[in-house]
Amino acid sequence: MHTTIQYMAAENTLAPAVSGDGGQALAEDSRDFAGTVGDVTVANPAMTARNVNVWYGEQQAIIDTSLDIGKSQVISMIGPSGCGKSTFIRCLNRMNDTIDSCRVTGDIRLEGQNIYDKKLDVVPLRAQVGMVFQKPNPFPKSIYDNVAYGPRIHGLAEDKQGVDEIVETSLSKAGLWDEVKDRLGEPGTGLSGGQQQRLCIARTIAVSPEVILMDEPCSALDPIATATIEELIDELRQHYAIAIVTHSMQQAARVSQRTAYFHLGRLIEVGATDDIFTNPGHRLTEDYITGRFG
């Protein structure tokens, strides 16, 4: 898993022309693109991304995208499949490092620190920017160990009692404590899908991150489990900045305060969720939310 991330100086011009079919197609399809509609900045940002470009080999997946992730609010990323929304949030905690051919340029900052700085250690970064994945992926260990793993490797607790406390508060915040408090020793993989996903959220918040990234956290869950997770996201918003990728526009409308619409690697429009869904500023956004494609 050797990574070949190269950091380049951010360019304020439009995305450089790229060779290969993907790049060509992107360039042509977005002929009428004249910059992101709406304000990409927020008053109180947890993370700021400026002029981010991402390549998978020759293929450009994100083109010149700037976006802020606001504190104590949920921003949802919507858009058709392959539009780059997952790629974008995976840049925010450098999960893309695990893909050999992936190359990221631009400027992404967490508390003023450029996270793609060569000297930056990804381990504390990922403790600060946690991630919940599409498919619930608890470790094949006990429920307790799943949550305790993060605090243990980061040394967040002095002793066993401290770990116990973190496990209890994390599971409580994730709304799972009452369901599992009598069987913390049972394997996490034995829980139902929705419980597993909440366990993964508990595991993420156990290391007290600033930002939580969620990559389609409900796409593998039934509607009731989805509703539980959505309520949970709404509660978590008070303590964390949350970025959620979703395929469901209803979900975006329900849980988020800001919405960003991605199309073919570009951030087309961003704004308050209510505005985007009632009064979209760009033709592509309107087409997408009215169901004309996607």
């Binding site: 695990t98 970064l125 991630m131 992926n137 793993y149 993060g150």
Partner: peptide, 9 residues
Amino acid sequence: IREAALGVG
């Protein structure tokens, strides 16, 4: 599993 572990740092 790798992603989960990397994801918590």
